Amino acid sequence: MMNIGYANGKYVQLDEPVIPIDERGHQFGDGVYEVIRVYKGKPFMLEEHLQRLIQSAKAIKLPIQQSVEDFKALILEAVQKSNELESAVYLQITRGAAVRQHLFPSAPVSITMTVRQVAGIDTEAREIGMKAIFHEDERWANCYIKSLNLLPNILAKQIAHDAGCYEAILVRDGFITEGTSSNVYMVKNGVVYTTPLSKQILSGITRMAVKEVTESLGVPFIEKKFTPDELLQADEVFITSTTSEILPIVNVDGKSIGDGNPGEWTMKAYRKFKEFILAD
């Protein structure tokens, strides 16, 4: 098993220098990306990830010539070469390399990718639950685009880490949007609530799976704005992402959620999600 890299048609070592100094992803964050989880050698919800990638590219007028099928073939080839059964694929597309200027260059896009082994969240940590903080959402207006411009996310995530927390739950105009790298949910009186899709949040792929899991369990899944105070009064809180899957949050800003333990429904949903993975 090995971690591998790919850059514009060539497989490379991860420490091999391959990015030109005039690469626009490096200079401007002018690109988009996806992270795809691989379970037992099979990329999970690959079609959904790649459809989102194409939509993000269209939103920033990035002229990708490759089709979804082309990217599928590339990813499957890379996963096979790596022989990593439990891994994460990072696929990045930028506007390419050209002399630095703000206007779009006449240059081919740049495609890079890594396949790295991933262990996921520690079982004991998941059973204990994670802590989070609230943080002002200082990102741009188009968070539905999965762009490379993640500095506000990074800064908020670091503040959460420095406070001994796993995630920062972002708040804009008095309402929760999402986490720095996750979607946010609360469970109240047997109903799951999450922020409605808009330009202010990313349409999470795991969010799609959670909606299916929720409906399969006969639990209402409601898209509705909610405030930090409402979240603190929830019976359960959890977040989702490609790498953290369904992860219980038991404390926010030093205040316990429910009885301070992972919620019964959250853990039931997580077990159902694992079944969903095997069926994909």
Rank of each mutant, 00 (worst) to 15 (best):
L232R: 15
D137L: 06
K72T: 15
M1I: 00
T94V: 15
E178N: 08
S56Y: 11
R95Q: 13
P228D: 11
Q80V: 06
I128P: 00
Y166G: 06
K224W: 05
A73T: 13
S106N: 09
P43Q: 01
A57T: 08
L217K: 03
I205T: 03
F221Q: 04
K211Y: 07
L46G: 00
A73K: 15
L14P: 02
K58H: 07
V68C: 12
Y144W: 07
V250P: 02
M45D: 08
V191Y: 02
A156R: 04
A132G: 06
P17L: 06
K81Y: 03
V99L: 14
R271I: 02
P248T: 08
R100I: 11
V32I: 15
T214A: 05
T214F: 06
S67L: 12
L53P: 09
I60G: 09
V79W: 01
I21W: 05
I277R: 09
L148H: 05
V184E: 01
P108Q: 11
A209K: 02
S181Y: 07
I154K: 11
L50F: 08
E124R: 15
M267D: 00
S198H: 10
S256T: 02
E127C: 15
V118C: 02
S241Q: 08
A97M: 03
A160K: 07
S56R: 02
A163P: 00
K224V: 11
I64E: 00
S198N: 10
F175W: 08
W140R: 06
P108S: 15
V89K: 00
R116I: 05
Q55T: 10
I145T: 12
V213K: 11
A160C: 14
Y33G: 04
V79I: 09
H49R: 04
F273M: 07
D259W: 04
A59E: 08
K40E: 12
L91R: 05
L50K: 13
I246C: 06
S67T: 15
K274I: 11
V219D: 05
V192Y: 03
D122R: 14
S203K: 10
R207I: 02
L85A: 15
S198C: 06
Y6N: 03
D22W: 14
N261W: 04
S181M: 12
F273L: 14
V18P: 02
R207E: 03
K42D: 04
T227S: 09
F104L: 12
K274Q: 09
V35K: 03
L85S: 07
P152N: 03
I93P: 01
I154D: 07
D229P: 06
P108H: 13
G174C: 13
P20T: 03
T240K: 03
I93T: 14
E47P: 07
L14Y: 03
F71P: 08
K225Y: 08
V192I: 13
A209P: 01
I277N: 05
R271L: 13
V237E: 01
W265F: 12
A269C: 12
I159P: 14
W265M: 14
K199S: 14
S82Q: 03
P17Y: 13
C143L: 04
